[in-house]
């Protein structure tokens, strides 16, 4: 198997830990060119990336720095910010609602990522093995194209324990109804399922695209060696998809941490704060109570958490490498 895999590798492919790597690196070292034509290209290059740099400075860097500053202030948005040092951070440490919201968010992220990646992976693999129909791919991505607000309204009607069609079916089967969006035990799993339904089309297509980069010869070789579908999935598909899986997982985690619209439309954080995810709490503090200083502090805490999680994940999943490297 190993021999066949090596044999099927494209020419020039690197093997992790092999001597080829240093040789390739040396061989690929750029030669310094100082011709007039290249200097002109250098200018054009800068010009080309200027819009992106400007966008980054105006819409990312400045708001981030401003947010950091505001997190040290009492800022009620309509009056000038007052510097209060670490006041907001002290409040954060003692804010039970914040920590409860964090736990709620982590629970939501865990469910949304686990279900999201697993279902997307399964759907993508089935699609890849069964059909190349663009119509079916189009249908799969359809929920992703629907507005989150519309999805939230429709799902809240469907899941209503007295009037919803889902509970009509459940009641006809079991005689009981489930308060999906108003029972503490059910609300976060329900929101996670709605979110996965909404986003799985996009992640499925990403994974599907990754699957198409795996050379078919690899599967042919495996089949020749007598591997069954599950073995091929476990020993070929999963390892070769690692960079895509890592990217999808990180994107799903970040997007799950930022969940807001579906919660705002369906539960508004209830019942009794059971679905009061961090973004809801931040929004309520900032835009509802006009406490933008504390809202900035919480946003910064979320930002720091996302950096740590993304970095750790990248390291753990060796996101830039697949097992063929």
């Amino acid at each position: 198997m190993t021999t066949q895999l090596e044999a099927n590798k494209p020419a020039g492919a690197r093997t992790r830990g092999s001597k080829d790597r240093s040789k390739n690196r040396k061989g690929a070292a750029p030669t310094r060119v100082t011709s007039a034509a290249n200097r002109s290209d250098w200018k054009l290059g800068w010009l080309l990336i200027t819009p992106a740099i400007l966008g980054f400075l105006v819409f990312a860097l400045y708001p981030t720095l401003r947010g950091i500053y505001l997190s040290f202030t009492d800022f009620r948005v309509l009056t000038p910010a007052k510097w209060i040092g670490l006041g907001n951070y002290e409040m954060l440490l003692n804010d039970k609602v914040f920590w409860d919201s964090l736990l709620t968010t982590l629970y939501f992220v865990f469910l949304a990522v686990l279900l999201g990646v697993a279902i997307s992976m399964l759907t993508a693999v089935i699609l890849h093995r069964v059909t190349n129909s663009t119509v079916i791919r189009g249908l799969i991505i359809l929920p992703f194209l629907i507005s989150s607000v519309v999805a939230g309204v429709v799902w809240s009607w469907m899941l209503d324990s007295q009037l919803g069609i889902v509970n009509l079916w459940i009641e006809s089967l079991s005689g009981e109804t489930i308060r999906f969006l108003s029972d503490r035990a059910w609300v976060i799993p329900s929101l996670a399922v709605i979110t996965v339904w909404k986003s799985m089309g996009y992640t499925t297509i990403l994974i599907f695209a990754g699957l198409q980069t795996i050379p078919p010869q690899v599967y042919e070789a495996a089949r020749t060696d007598g591997a069954n579908e599950f073995q091929m999935f476990r020993r070929i598909t999963l390892p070769l998809l690692r960079p895509i899986t890592a990217m999808v997982t990180i994107l799903t985690i970040i997007s799950a941490f930022q969940v807001f619209d579906i919660v705002q439309v369906t539960t508004k954080g209830g019942p009794a704060n059971a679905s009061n995810v961090l973004q809801m709490y931040i929004y309520d503090k900032a835009f509802g109570q006009l406490d933008f200083g504390y809202g900035a502090t919480m946003s910064l805490a979320l930002f720091a958490m996302l950096i740590v999680i993304s970095f750790t994940q990248m390291r753990l999943m060796r996101a830039s490498e697949s097992d063929t490297n």
Binding site: S156, W157, L159, D160, S161, Q162, L163, R179, L181, S182, D183, T266, G270, P271
Partner: peptide
């Protein structure tokens, strides 16, 4: 109804 049995408003109820 119990609290949260209806997620819709009074008119819909």
């Amino acid at each position: 109804p119990r609290e949260g049995d209806f997620t819709q408003g009074a008119v819909e109820q």
